[in-house]
Amino acid sequence: MSSNTLFLAADAPLAAHAAAAASPRGAAAFGFDGIHKTYRSTDGQAVTALQDVSFHAAPGEFLTVVGPSGCGKSTLLRILAGIAQATSGTVSVGGKPSTGPSREIGVVFQAPVLLPWRTVLENTLVPAQVQRRDMAVARRRALDYLSMVGLKGFEGKYPRELSGGMQQRVGIARALVNDPGLLLMDEPFGALDAMTRETMNLELLRIKAQSGATVMLVTHSIPEAVFLGDRVVVMSPRPGRVTQIVQVDLPAQRTLDMINTDAFGAYVSGIRGNLNASGGLD
């Protein structure tokens, strides 16, 4: 896997990227108010996936949502992205109630979800093409973001020629290509090995700092949630409820060394205790 070395090469174009990042339309706040989600399982039973979920994020905030598998955190993200509907409750993006997909939002899915007939660059340009943006500008930005995630030189490759980690980074560049005010990430590094994952997390913080977007990242890893988040939203197992929102007062400039500090450990064990109490960890 060449993923780690590739990141070293990504430092050079940062300065070039700063110009592109200086012009985002501004971070978008978002909020959930009283979100309920029930669906019918195949045997006709009504299942409550989300119960009265409410929380808000300020513009530019990095919010992580952590909870056990099946707690509805991905559903919550899909509702915010406009690809799933809440049974009741309201969602707002950028201060306005949101009822469907929004041009303000970029989404990174669990799987890379690349179109196999498009090259890396063409995949990155999908959102720009869909939203009929200025393609010359989008192209420049796509190339910037691709080199930022360490894929310079791979623009003309097809997805099947890339490793899993590289494919996922294309997914990140794609989510950023329109400079969204809100970036949604659904366990984006879940499929990657631990080493690559740590590097990707650092990279993500750097990208976040550059683009200034608001981020909501869903994960089932407590250390990852603490490491990345300004605040951590802790959810209970099904039916998913918010049991705790933890403000993480670690230095804004996170480093991997921080993971070994007592302060970091205290956050992690605090959240783990909370999840245990709600029956989230067996």
């Binding site: 899909r78 406009g82 690809i83 997909p101 041009r103 979800v113 179109l115 999908v126 939203q131």
Partner: peptide, 26 residues
Amino acid sequence: APRDQVDLMTACTASRWQVLWMVRFP
């Protein structure tokens, strides 16, 4: 067409025709 590819398009605010043309058709 894979569900997640269609979801991706929908999340990008793609119209039905764009989903047809850019995902379902290829």
